[in-house]
Design a protein around this nucleic acid. Structure first.
Lengths: 227, 227, 227, 227
DNA sequence: GATGAATGAGATTTCATTCAT
DNA sequence: AATGAATGAAATCTCATTCAT
């Protein structure tokens, strides 16, 4: 009961934070504003989330969970389809997610920027102590793993030809998604036009590109030019 | 001060800022530290750069200039090669640049996150008044245009087959390299391994992928799956 | 905070400020020092008093209140005495106050220098926004009015003969005591000697002079000399 | 020649300073502004006057000289009149001077506030080193002495009866003048009305008061009231 | 001697975070 | 657990004053 209540409260706070962050961006957002919108005081806010960064991580975590849920749904939906299809569907899912969840997308991008393996000393204390940051670290690879798993299935069922390590292919797909979501962040939404180009077309080209990569063996040793 | 002298001074300050930002990250960096490293006082620092954000934008601008210079060099170097080669070389250049210039890479990523067309209220006042931010806005599309130009040349010389709008192809390539640089930012450098995968391999796969896209006509209307 | 508590806090800060200002003078006083002496931080100091000038005005206001209280006590004490006596007692009170409260004296002199009716552009922004400056402006004439009231009473009871407007006589008395307090500010205290003259003697002469003015009708039209 | 040139320059700077100080007050005045108005740069200004305080002292000194000149003229003009007349004329002169020379008046008042015999440690270094401050210190008593001298002459010729020390009487007159000029500073000019009272009337009352004091013997031992 | 640039000291502001009740 | 007040760190600004050329 108590626990449940606490969780509800946390959720409502995160929701408020989402709104504020969405409006003015993380950096400009003030804890005071979040608290106000959540109908509590700043100090209460701090009893739930010990730092601004932790709050942001909680939001990130929520976004990541939402994305994962989407992934699981896709996996389930396409479980009887070839692995190629489900793999591409995951890609598609991520891009839609980015489009529909601006703040989450930003948060996720930001998260993956933060976790520089090499530079733990650049992490703030607040972040190191963030429970949600720890949670994220425990699961952040899941997104690659789920994708890799579908690619592996595709290899088994013959729909995917490329012989590279599934994690490698998964990472490659990820780079395209990230790039897409970055462009999206800089432009607005799927219906937006940038240089007269529709984001939707860009998405489709990315999907087709991914498909081509998956159904072909590609020689990455070939030297394309002399530097 | 003579313009030249002032510029020299600015440059030396930016260089100091680079070192500080590289060491502790933008957020933790103190203006006092930057000033000290530049051998000036805080106030002098402020007469040159009116805010921390402006200083960061100056650094970003310098990074962007450096990247553009690299682009121009590549374009010149491969001016007698087919457009396909130079286009891929540009891509390669960007990725190398990201690898070799960590702070710039981060700064550029940050910049492209910041320029949310629609949301001026997410910009801080300091940023709005930043002369370097304005400068960046004036030229940030150049990177796409240069790339598009080479693609266009490739079409002319027959090395590039894909019939899409060059800007579209340029943007698509951009998504991949942005993704790459983001992964890079999250991992470290080219020699780093992420999921046992070498960044160098990722780079090569991206180049090959880009090549495939450029030398083929791709149907982006095909429906890959039912949602 | 409860109003009462806040006021206590304000008072303790003003007390600290008095000590610091008394020791090193307004100009050399540092807000940091005041805060330290008050046992708070600079920022807290600023939440109570928004500027150094406002703090000084608060001190001025306190000094003025103290002076007014002294006036009320005198008025009460001499309420059964002739108006002449109470009027002179007020004068005397002011001079004693100036003598005993160096910082207040200086602050009040400073205040009366500052309020140049016609020249709002000589006021700093901080002063214009000072709540205590406003408070002072609301009551600074009280000192004349209280004095004028006693003079009026003196006229009624026949102890004061001079037929001029009580406010005029009050202002005239004011010029003498302001002059006295100024000389005092420049010399030190009542026991000090300036040109071998005791401040105490000066005070007494001023009182006698005031008395003469009050108990005589004076012709101010008489031409004393040709210019 | 050189010396003369330098003096001319100094004079023109002081004149500029007067204008600036008159407009915004000493505290708000910026050296930059003074320099600009004088048609020189800030640094040049500093070669002439080593500090803002010194500049202000120079202005004060000029004002004092002007006042003294006025005194000498009066003394000369009334040298064949009784000492009472010339004494009052001096008083009158001072009040006119205050009226006509707002900045000087303020500067003089300020000067006499500053020279607190007891508190040398409150003097700033800049002031201690000010050549004009030293000059002022050498002559600031002159104003009292000139006045005392005329009073003494009045005693000799029988026009002044009061047997007090002439310096004492002089100081007493001074307090009234100071008070007058303070009130004037707070109100504007001679034509201004404060509490419906004309400053000119105030001046005349002060003169009459002074006259009464000078032509009567006054008992300053009399106890006017019990405190 | 004149100039543009820089310094130094301190005022003021902004917020995330913490304390006391 | 909630609240109002306070803290601490750093950004930013203002100017008198000084330096280097």
């Amino acid at each position: 009961m108590k626990e449940e209540k606490r969780i509800n409260k946390e959720e409502s706070i995160i929701t408020a934070a989402e709104k504020v962050f969405n409006k003015v961006g993380y950096k400009n957002a003030k804890m005071e504003e979040v608290a106000k919108l959540a109908g509590i005081t700043k100090v209460t806010l701090y009893t739930y989330f010990q730092s601004k960064e932790n709050l942001y991580m909680a939001l990130t975590y929520r976004g990541f969970q939402k994305l994962l849920n989407g992934y699981y749904q896709i996996i389930d939906k396409y479980k009887n389809e070839p692995g190629l299809i489900s793999s591409l569907a995951l890609l598609n899912k991520f891009m839609d997610f980015s489009t529909e969840n601006f703040v989450y997308n930003e948060a996720l991008l930001n998260y993956f920027s933060t976790i520089r393996s090499a530079d733990e000393n650049k992490l703030t204390d607040a972040l190191k102590e963030s429970i949600y940051f720890k949670k994220m670290q425990d699961i952040h690879n899941l997104i690659f793993k789920l994708s890799a798993k579908e690619i592996l299935r595709g290899k088994s069922d013959g729909s995917i030809i490329n012989s590279f390590d599934p994690m490698f292919l998964s990472l490659h797909a990820w780079t395209m998604i990230i790039g897409y979501s970055k462009v999206l962040a800089a432009s607005g939404n799927e219906d937006t036009t940038i240089f007269h180009i529709k984001m939707k077309d860009l998405k489709n080209l990315i999907l087709q590109t991914a498909k081509i990569v998956l159904i072909n063996n590609i020689d990455i040793e070939e030297n394309l030019f002399e530097l």
